[in-house]
């Protein structure tokens, strides 16, 4: 049996490093025949989760010691789904516990925060968090559309 296609990137806590990494993951998913909707969902998730980690997990662009501040993104494609595992060595931060913004009836009432987490919850079929060996692990997956 062939191993499942997998690709892994390690980046530093840096918003500028994120876009090229997302681009390469998109290319990888495309190469393995993942449908456009699933790719779009994964792309948004990468940005939302990693941006949250960079901004809040590591403390709003504050000082990060050189040994710390690593984010690893592992993407796996199976027959049924595309899966993304985002790991970082920052302080404990569980995005699955972030409050979902209540959908308000007008512009006035709608809160500006929480839009990203709402998108992640809505776009994915699974969204899990674990704290393992002083690392945050966020796992999301999206079902692939059948041909």
């Amino acid at each position: 049996m062939q191993p499942e296609p997998k690709i892994q990137f390690s980046i530093k806590v840096d918003l500028a490093a994120l876009a090229p990494t997302a681009e390469r993951i998109r290319y990888f998913l495309c190469e393995h025949g993942v449908d456009a909707d699933a790719i779009y969902a994964i792309e948004i998730v990468i940005e939302e989760i990693a941006t949250n980690t960079i901004k809040y997990g590591f403390g709003n662009y504050g000082f990060v010691s050189p040994a710390k501040g690593n984010i690893t993104l592992t993407t796996t494609v199976t027959e049924a789904r595309a899966e993304l595992l985002i790991e970082d060595d920052g302080p404990p931060f569980d995005p699955t516990q972030a409050p979902d913004p209540i959908q308000h009836r007008d512009v006035d009432e709608m809160p500006v925060g929480g839009l990203g987490i709402h998108l992640v919850r809505t776009l994915t079929d699974g969204f899990e968090y674990k704290r393992v060996n002083h690392h945050n692990q966020v796992r999301v997956w999206v079902h692939r559309k059948k041909e």
Partner: peptide, 19 residues
């Protein structure tokens, strides 16, 4: 072709301000 929550936030802030 692509918008994420940071972009959506701009639309919301702009609508709030102008209204």
């Amino acid at each position: 072709q692509y918008v994420n929550s940071a972009g959506l936030k701009v639309f919301l802030l702009t609508a709030k301000k102008i209204e």
